[in-house]
Simulated assay, not measured.
Amino acid sequence: MNILCFGDSNTYGYCPDGSGRFDADTRWTGLLQKKLGTNDRIIEEGLCGRTTVFSDELREGRRGLDTIGILLESHAPVDLLILMLGTNDCKTRYNASAGTIAKGLEQVITKAQKSSPHPFRLLVISPILLAPGVGDPGFDPEFNKGSELVSQNLATEYKKIAARYHADFLDAASVANASETDRQHLDALGHRLLAEAIYKKITT
């Protein structure tokens, strides 16, 4: 089974202390590969700053909608698509509600289904919550208190989208938390907990 993991920095494996990227033995995608064994193949497609449909004027190529179709073609056949996006959509510059972000996710799903040359199973994951104070001085000024509230409402909206498209659903915030270091990224423990939850979800 070919499994495409499409997400942002928490799929990429960004280290909360800004030192780079967790290695394959630490990030959840690598851990999931180990759990599944050699009969399944994990395809890592995590990109820092990736959104569902919003354009980042400071960084090119961050709209998931623009690349999901290309990736499904280039990695064909994809048997399972795991989508975990939404954290970056909570940035203040986009001024988007959880409902609007969910509509963006729906566009990504629709594009994926239209573009893939093969039918695939879908797992929608709502991201971990932005921790309190993520926008405080010394942390990330792209977020504020409003961003925190929006992130708290994503799971409810994403679950509706998953049901609409007959997809599996997992709330990452129910199993893992943002690191205390930067209040937005998974630490090593978070990656391990998420890998375990995803493994259970896709094998049961």
Rank of each mutant, 00 (worst) to 15 (best):
D79E: 15
T38S: 06
Q152L: 09
Y199P: 06
V53C: 11
G37M: 06
N177G: 10
L4P: 09
G30N: 14
G133Y: 03
N2R: 12
A188G: 03
S19D: 12
I161C: 10
D168I: 03
N39H: 11
P127R: 11
S179K: 06
G13W: 02
T181W: 04
F120T: 09
G13P: 03
V175A: 07
K114H: 12
E148S: 03
E196H: 09
H166N: 14
L32Q: 06
Y14P: 00
W28S: 05
N177M: 13
I198C: 05
L47K: 08
H166V: 11
L189C: 07
R192F: 14
A173R: 01
A76C: 06
L186W: 01
N95K: 13
L123P: 00
G86E: 07
T92D: 14
P132A: 15
I43N: 12
M1T: 14
E44N: 13
A167E: 04
A188M: 07
R27W: 15
C15Y: 13
Y158H: 13
F139S: 10
T51Q: 05
A155M: 10
E106W: 03
K35E: 09
F6Q: 07
E148K: 01
H75I: 07
A96K: 03
K111E: 13
T29K: 04
P141N: 14
R50W: 02
A176W: 06
K91P: 00
D79S: 15
T100V: 14
K159M: 08
N88E: 02
S116D: 11
A24R: 08
K35L: 07
G104Q: 01
L85V: 05
N88I: 02
